[in-house]
Amino acid sequence: MGRKARGRSVNESLLRRSFDDPKAFGEFYRAYVERLTVFFARRTLDPETALDLTGETFALALERRRQFRGDSAQEEQGWLFAIARNQLASFWTRGEVEREALRRLGCDPPQSTDADLEWVERVADLPLLRSTVQSALGRLPGDQAYAVAARVVDARPYADLAGELKVSEQVVRARVSRGLRAMAEMLSDPKLEDLT
C-alpha cells in the first residue's frame, strides 16, 4: 500500500508533498510504518520498545521534514531510516526511548494495545527470532553470554557488573562486545537472512 499511484508517480516523494499537505504525511506514515516497526522490533526484540521508537522516529520526521532535500521514494526512505538508526543508537546508549519530538508536537506515542503488540510480534517474526537469538546466546562462552545477557537484556550498568565479577569495566565491555560480535556472525548465517 502507500506507493500505489493515484494520479501520480509511484516514485514521487510523499514526504516532499507533505510540506504543505497533512494528508500526504498520513500516506507517508502508512507507507513506512510496518517496515519501521519491524526494523526496531528485530533489533530490540521488544514490541513495546519498537512501538515507542517508531513513534518518536515519525515525530522527528514530521518535525524535520522540510530539511529533506530529495525528490524520490527511495530518498525519503533512506532519510527516514537514517533517523531510525540514530534513534536506535541513542536507545542503546541511554537505555530508554527519547520522547522529545513527540512532546514538542503535543502527541502521545502509539498505544501498546494487545492487538498492536501481537501485530508487532507477528510482522517481525519475533518468536522465531527470539529462539534464534537464545540459541546463539547459548553457543557463546559462558563469561560472554553472562555479560551480554546482563548488559543487553537486563540493562545493568558496566560498573555494577565489573564489581560483581571482580574485573575492570574494560574487561566487561570487551566481553559484551566480543559476545555481540560473535552473535552477529551466527545470525548472519544465510539460513537466518530473512530474520535480520
Binding site: M1, G2, S18, D20, D21, P22, K23, F25, G26, Y29, R30, A31, V33, E34, T37, L51, T54, G55, F58, A59, L62, L105, G106, C107, D108, P109, P110, Q111, S112, T113, A115, D116, E118, W119, V123
Partner: peptide
Amino acid sequence: MSELPPGLDDFGRRLEQAAAREID
C-alpha cells in the same frame, strides 16, 4: 502492507492532525 492495529492506526491520524496544525 497488512492492516494496521488500532494503536498505530490512531497514531497515524494524530500525526496527520499534528502536520495540519503545523502547516496552519
